[in-house]
Design a binder for these strands. Structure first.
Length: 723
DNA sequence: CAAACCTGATTTTTT
DNA sequence: ATCAGGTTTG
């Protein structure tokens, strides 16, 4: 067996991991250390060298993207398509098991998956239904509670109310929510995992079957597993299975959604004799960037301990820019981005990262002004758009009349005279008789409703029946197409003014083509329609289609995880914003913020800019803030200050303590102006001098005007009045 | 039924 | 500042 292609390109640590014996293994893989590569090569090693059948492998990731990438890379390494290899997300794999064993799992065959938006709607309705004291419970909080419990693997009956009446109420809401889901055959994301876990736990035969089948379990981003995911893995591994998990405790940034980095520590106890391999050689960033990242993360406690190194270049220092305000910050970033592009670099190789989405606006405005194409990550995905979900709701009703969530969504969309009153009657009937809204609608239409309302309800029900009947047997995309037209959603959206309606209609057309290119699995028992609907819920679809245009990349630091860019800007490094105010209170929160900072820094390959603003307008309020403590955690030797910190005269405090290692910052010059000087212009009003260049008659100053924004003015013409 | 108006909240995101 | 959600009004 020629193992060259599998091992040749690996360093010692990677090779050690890939060829580790058939024993549990924990690979601590630093940022940019070839984590995915190790997983892919491990899979290839097991198949090619150890002679393990692809069927005996289970590879788990967190995102569809990661799963797809892993499959592709394994296939191209082995040079053959690997059918029967289970690669997928936790949710995708759990779904697969539940579809196969729906009976044992206690689900109807045509159960459907609801996303968090559906879930929230359902909970809102539930709160109204149960007439819980209004205002006491925010639906979001209930959703948070339910998902939190499910993530921990807890059913209502397992939860201790701790004698707290509020908590008791939450538990009972959880129970009611469960009842509705069960009745409608609805499964939310957390439920997929929980059910899949219970399925194996409670069915000895099934468990044994899967334990025997999956000898090797490969897990990506292990630090992100939540309790139920880890429990499922342990169950599946059993006594004989060999888990091979890869993760980085320093990149655990999802504690708030149930991820438990502690699993990395627990793993060694749960699987005695675990081989631990650390991947510390980094192939991405310059030494300077790595040194800075190492220095920052060293401030965290309870780490596995790891120090990234590279045999590459030292690289340029990290540039720190102190902006006057968020506009100035944006101007700076865009200026540097322009230079980068002017030097012939790709826009797409530059990323602007920020802590919270609200920060993107100012940056976007600047980019628009500068005519630099950009793309913001993290918007609504295709299958999450309202019009798409409307169309899907019709399709789901066709598949399952008892799907209350979908029923409620489209019963009066487009408006067909079924108002709040009527729906309310249906709800109370449904509640009293523990039945679905569909059945309730049928019952009250024949008994309780007056003529007009009854007609409307009957019309809606026969519309759905007609859709089901007339499209039965058609190809999936024809089915989707017909349903969209029969629903008259198109006419409904045509009435939307502006481009909004246009876009919606285009999206509906796009849904038809999505259906056209959807390939149902012939081995699958469920109908192509059900399969398509599951697919839509589970893979919400990537953002914009024009992802491949050469655009500057804007995203939060969270969504930058796993990516890399030659040029990176980290914006808004101010205490209160990053680390976020809501995280600084406890050390766990602060340490997670620090890990996020570590993630951000390690995205950069060559050049890293860090910016902060002294003044930032947030929620319509001006705030003054100190530079992020993370900036001062970077040793000075790796940092270059772009400009002496500007001493800004401001009414609040005329003198401020200067930041460590910075000059007092008053920049006198022969023009008689200084940075931070307040000035008044007869047309633009009051402003602050941000910058200046040139001498004598050509001297220009950059002024940030309070109302007119930032402008460059020729000093000799501007007639600025010093204030 | 839709438009106008008021209120409150506003970290991070995948499935 | 902005947006979503709910409520009131025409």
């Amino acid at each position: 067996m020629d193992v060259t292609p599998i091992l040749d390109s690996l360093n010692d640590a990677q090779r050690q991991a890939v060829t580790s014996p058939s024993e549990p293994a924990l690979v601590i893989a630093g940022a940019g250390s070839g984590k995915t590569r190790v997983l892919v090569h491990r899979a290839a090693w097991l198949i090619e060298v150890e002679g393990i059948s692809p069927q005996s492998l289970l590879a788990v990731t967190f995102t569809n993207k990661a799963a797809a990438e892993m499959r592709n890379r394994i296939e191209s390494l082995l040079n053959v398509p690997v059918r029967h290899l289970w690669i997928g997300t936790f949710h995708g794999l759990a779904h697969r098991m539940l579809r196969r064993h729906w009976r044992e799992a206690g689900l109807p065959q045509n159960f459907q998956i609801i996303d968090s938006d559906d879930q929230l709607r359902l909970i809102k309705r539930l709160v109204k239904n149960l007439e819980v004291d209004d205002g006491r419970w925010v639906p979001k909080e209930i959703q948070w509670f339910i998902n939190g419990q499910k993530d921990e693997g807890l059913r209502p009956k397992h939860i201790d109310d701790e004698g707290d009446p509020d908590r008791r109420e939450l538990i009972s809401l959880y129970q009611s929510y469960e009842d509705i889901c069960q009745r409608g055959g609805l499964v939310d994301f957390a439920e997929l995992l929980l059910r899949a876990h219970e399925l194996l736990r409670d069915n000895a035969e099934l468990l044994e079957h899967y334990q025997r089948r999956f000898q090797h379990l490969l897990v990506d981003e292990f630090q992100d597993t939540n309790a139920i995911q880890y429990a499922w893995l342990r169950l599946l591994a059993g006594k004989k299975g060999v888990p091979f998990v890869v993760g980085d405790d320093d990149q655990s940034i999802y504690r708030w959604r149930g991820a438990r980095v502690e699993h990395i520590h627990r793993f060694q106890k749960d699987f005695p004799g675990t081989n631990i391999v650390k991947l510390e050689q980094n192939y991405r960033s310059t030494e300077t960037i790595l040194n800075a990242a190492n220095a920052i993360i060293a401030n965290n406690s309870s780490r596995m301990g790891k120090k990234l190194w590279t045999d590459g270049a030292t690289g340029e220092p990290i540039k720190v820019y102190s902006a006057y305000n968020e506009r100035d910050e944006a101007d700076f970033v865009i200026g540097r981005l322009r230079d980068w592009i002017a030097q012939g670099n790709a826009r797409a190789d530059a990323a602007i990262l920020y802590r919270s989405n609200a920060q993107s606006r100012v940056l976007e405005e600047g980019l628009i002004n500068a005519r630099i194409p950009y793309r913001v990550y993290g918007g609504l995905r295709f299958f999450e758009r309202a019009e798409i979900k409307d169309a899907l709701a019709y399709l789901r009703l066709i598949s399952n009349r008892d799907d209350d969530s979908s029923f409620e969504r489209v019963v009066n969309k487009p408006t067909r005279g079924i108002g709040a009153r009527t729906v309310e009657m249906m709800r109370s009937y449904a509640r009293a008789n523990a039945c679905s809204l569909w059945r309730a609608a049928g019952a009250i239409a024949s008994d309780d409703l007056n003529g007009r309302a009854a007609n409307a309800v009957n019309a809606f029900m026969s519309l759905i029946e007609r859709m089901a009947r007339e499209t039965n047997g058609l190809d999936l995309h024809d089915r989707v197409d017909h349903v969209i037209h029969l629903s008259t959603l198109i006419d409904f959206f045509k009435k939307d003014k502006g481009e909004k309606g246009e876009t919606r209609i285009e999206n509906l057309a796009e849904l038809v083509s999505a259906a056209k290119s959807f390939e149902p699995d012939p081995a699958e028992e469920m109908s192509p329609l059900d399969e398509f609907l599951s697919h839509a819920a589970l893979e919400s679809g990537e953002g914009q289609a024009d992802a491949w245009e050469d655009c500057a990349q804007l995203m939060t630091m969270h969504s930058a995880k796993g990516l890399e860019f030659p040029l990176v800007f980290m914006c808004g490094l101010e205490d209160g914003l990053f680390p976020h105010q809501r995280s600084v209170a406890d050390s766990q929160g602060l340490e997670e913020e620090r890990r996020l900072c570590y993630v951000g820094i390690t995205r950069a390959m060559q050049t890293l800019y860090i910016t902060h603003a002294e003044q930032r307008r947030l929620h319509g309020m001006d705030n003054f803030s100190q530079p992020s403590r993370f900036i001062s955690e970077i040793p000075d030797e790796f940092v270059e200050e772009i400009r002496p910190r500007v001493q800004v005269a401001r009414p609040m405090r005329s003198t401020r303590p200067t930041h460590q290692g910075r000059s007092a910052g008053i920049t006198d010059n022969d023009l008689g102006i200084r940075l931070g000087q307040r000035v008044c212009h007869k047309k633009f009003g009051d402003g602050v001098i941000l910058n200046y260049e040139g001498q004598g008659a050509h001297a220009r100053v950059e002024v940030n005007f309070e109302s007119a924004g930032t402008k460059w003015l020729v000093l000799s013409y501007a007639n600025l009045e010093l204030m």
